[in-house]
Simulated assay, not measured.
Amino acid sequence: MTKLALTGGTGHLGGLVAQTLESEKLNVRYLARRPEAVSRAKGVSVYKASYEHSPEVVEALAGVDVLFMVSASESATRLQEHQAFIDSAKEAGVGHIIYTSFYNANPNSTFTLSPTHAATEKYIKDRGFTYTFLRDNFYTDFFAELCQEYGEIKGPAGNGRVSLVVRADVAEVVAQILKDPEKWANRTLDMTGPEDLTLAEIAQIASEILGKEIAYVEETVEEAYTSRQAWPAEEWEYDAWVSTYTAIAKGEQAGVSDDIESVLGRKATSLETYLKNLI
């Protein structure tokens, strides 16, 4: 039986994958920086491992055939952490990495965190792994939280469109791929929702379903930086937050894929359906 390892079990996406796999009889282990925080394990082995190249991580990955690698927490050293962890996987003899990347990832992407994903994809290929890249667009969950918590979506996105994807859909795709990894070997799959929407349209749909007025507030780039300085952060974080919207404005987050349907046999979840399930 194929031996699987999952990272990110204490996070949003990895936690959903772990939940989805609970009823499956797979040969799986979890890797976590804090094993005691992996509450969903239910008898599954949990190994202590960070995103680094170290004997501890190599040992945690020993015997693993397929590794599901959630991208590391956003940081200025994210790429270096990814590369070190991939080096550990190579030394341990892992053959196939399933990696959560980003929609339209390339070195020249407007969204400032996207080039790290492109570089990670390249590193996985250059190190000779079989790969499956899941390129997630921005999450529906995030924009729904903005609507619920602040009653508005604010940013310099203009009339650009984005094909938001529901995080749980991506988790279900991951779980399905882990059941038969070879079927999806050396594939890049775009994780999008079933529709391209402007932020004004997102706000309008949210208003109708949540039963309260949700506005889209158009900002200039300068205004966006100023408004986000209400939260203490490093400069690279402000850049990431603002470029979420400028990437949409430039059309880089538009485009609907049927890759979720090709894996799951059903259409991706729409914004309307997601919001209705919240109430």
Results as ranks from 00 to 15, higher is better:
211 G>Y: 11
211 G>L: 08
197 L>P: 05
207 S>R: 06
224 A>C: 09
202 I>D: 03
227 S>E: 10
218 E>H: 11
209 I>F: 07
193 G>R: 02
196 D>M: 02
194 P>M: 10
204 Q>M: 12
197 L>Q: 14
204 Q>R: 15
207 S>K: 08
212 K>T: 01
210 L>P: 14
213 E>R: 13
205 I>A: 09
216 Y>E: 07
202 I>M: 11
222 E>N: 01
208 E>L: 09
224 A>H: 04
209 I>W: 07
212 K>H: 13
194 P>Q: 03
221 V>K: 13
211 G>E: 08
214 I>D: 01
226 T>L: 14
224 A>L: 06
193 G>K: 01
219 E>V: 00
213 E>M: 01
208 E>C: 00
208 E>I: 00
211 G>A: 10
201 E>Q: 14
227 S>L: 04
224 A>I: 01
214 I>N: 05
211 G>Q: 10
211 G>P: 00
205 I>V: 15
217 V>E: 07
212 K>Q: 15
192 T>A: 12
197 L>F: 02
204 Q>E: 15
202 I>H: 03
226 T>D: 12
219 E>C: 03
209 I>E: 15
198 T>G: 11
203 A>I: 03
195 E>I: 04
209 I>S: 11
214 I>V: 15
193 G>T: 05
202 I>Q: 09
210 L>G: 13
201 E>M: 04
214 I>W: 07
205 I>P: 13
221 V>I: 14
193 G>M: 12
207 S>G: 10
220 T>I: 01
223 E>H: 08
193 G>L: 10
202 I>G: 06
223 E>W: 04
224 A>Y: 08
207 S>L: 06
194 P>C: 11
219 E>Y: 13
212 K>P: 01
196 D>N: 15
203 A>W: 05
225 Y>V: 03
209 I>Y: 08
214 I>M: 07
195 E>T: 12
200 A>Y: 03
200 A>H: 12
193 G>E: 03
192 T>K: 09
225 Y>F: 14
227 S>N: 07
206 A>N: 04
199 L>G: 03
218 E>K: 08
215 A>G: 00
211 G>N: 11
192 T>I: 12
202 I>Y: 12
193 G>I: 10
197 L>C: 01
207 S>A: 09
206 A>I: 04
210 L>K: 11
217 V>I: 15
221 V>C: 02
209 I>V: 15
225 Y>W: 01
211 G>I: 08
199 L>Y: 09
196 D>E: 15
220 T>N: 09
217 V>W: 06
226 T>S: 09
216 Y>G: 03
218 E>W: 05
194 P>W: 04
